[in-house]
Simulated assay, not measured.
Amino acid sequence: MGAVIRCALNDDVDNLMTFLERAGLSTDGVEGTIDSFLIMEDEKGNIQATIGIEQFGKVGLLRSLVMTSQTMKNDVYILFEQIFLLASEKGMKDIFMATNKIGAVKLVELLGFQQIKKTELPPVLSQAGHVQHVLTVDNSIFLKISL
């Protein structure tokens, strides 16, 4: 049996937060939004990758994409496919993401994301704490995909 992708549960909070901390990411808000995270784990139950989405009405912001070196390229596509399904089930119509890594931009553009200007962000997103922080990061890029 290979890797399994599933929605995170309350029991996963500590393991997920440890996984994110090891990757150098903030764990702010994870506990309250655990049902908006997907976990990919190996046959032993070890987290191999995760992706989360923060909901703002019909708008979503991708958060906390982390993969280990064992993650395969196809796993990334499956993770995105599954997070899009989760977002759709939660009523989101547009998904945004922010990055300052050119490699990430190229990857997500293959998935259908398009770069947008910071001024094109919906007001509800522009006011979000995480986005406020990203706006201060040099070379930050925002991308959008509509479901």
Rank of each mutant, 00 (worst) to 15 (best):
residue 27 T to H: 04
residue 20 L to I: 04
residue 60 G to P: 07
residue 38 L to I: 05
residue 3 A to F: 12
residue 68 T to M: 02
residue 116 I to D: 08
residue 104 A to F: 08
residue 140 S to R: 00
residue 42 D to G: 06
residue 120 E to D: 15
residue 47 I to M: 14
residue 62 L to I: 12
residue 79 L to M: 15
residue 103 G to C: 00
residue 74 N to K: 03
residue 16 L to F: 09
residue 59 V to D: 15
residue 111 L to N: 00
residue 130 H to R: 12
residue 128 A to Q: 15
residue 23 A to E: 03
residue 126 S to H: 00
residue 69 S to D: 13
residue 50 T to L: 01
residue 76 V to I: 14
residue 13 V to S: 05
residue 82 Q to L: 05
residue 123 P to S: 13
residue 77 Y to Q: 11
residue 59 V to R: 03
residue 102 I to L: 10
residue 9 L to P: 01
residue 92 M to E: 09
residue 21 E to F: 01
residue 88 S to H: 06
residue 63 R to A: 02
residue 52 G to M: 07
residue 90 K to T: 03
residue 119 T to V: 13
residue 114 Q to H: 12
residue 136 T to Q: 15
residue 128 A to H: 15
residue 25 L to Q: 14
residue 100 N to T: 02
residue 73 K to D: 08
residue 37 F to V: 09
residue 141 I to W: 05
residue 79 L to T: 02
residue 135 L to S: 08
residue 124 V to M: 06
residue 78 I to D: 13
residue 23 A to G: 14
residue 17 M to N: 15
residue 103 G to F: 02
residue 125 L to K: 06
residue 29 G to E: 04
residue 51 I to C: 03
residue 92 M to P: 10
residue 11 D to M: 09
residue 26 S to M: 09
residue 112 G to A: 03
residue 120 E to F: 02
residue 71 T to P: 03
residue 114 Q to M: 12
residue 18 T to E: 08
residue 44 K to T: 15
residue 83 I to V: 15
residue 10 N to Q: 15
residue 114 Q to R: 14
residue 5 I to D: 11
residue 40 M to I: 10
residue 99 T to N: 07
residue 52 G to E: 11
residue 133 H to A: 08
residue 24 G to H: 04
residue 14 D to N: 06
residue 116 I to K: 03
residue 81 E to C: 02
residue 114 Q to D: 06
residue 115 Q to E: 12
residue 11 D to E: 15
residue 113 F to H: 05
residue 105 V to H: 05
residue 65 L to P: 04
residue 98 A to V: 06
residue 102 I to M: 11
residue 73 K to I: 04
residue 95 I to Q: 03
residue 30 V to G: 09
residue 135 L to N: 11
residue 118 K to R: 12
residue 30 V to N: 07
residue 76 V to Y: 05
residue 6 R to Q: 12
residue 128 A to W: 06
residue 49 A to L: 11
residue 133 H to G: 00
residue 68 T to W: 00
residue 16 L to A: 04
residue 51 I to G: 04
residue 120 E to G: 08
residue 32 G to C: 05
residue 59 V to F: 07
residue 75 D to N: 08
residue 105 V to E: 14
residue 113 F to G: 02
residue 94 D to E: 15
residue 79 L to D: 13
residue 30 V to Y: 10
residue 122 P to M: 00
residue 16 L to Q: 06
residue 69 S to F: 00
residue 16 L to G: 07
residue 60 G to L: 07
residue 90 K to G: 07
residue 102 I to R: 11
residue 106 K to E: 08
residue 139 N to R: 13
residue 136 T to R: 12
residue 134 V to I: 04
residue 8 A to G: 13
residue 16 L to Y: 05
residue 133 H to W: 09
residue 59 V to H: 10
residue 103 G to V: 02
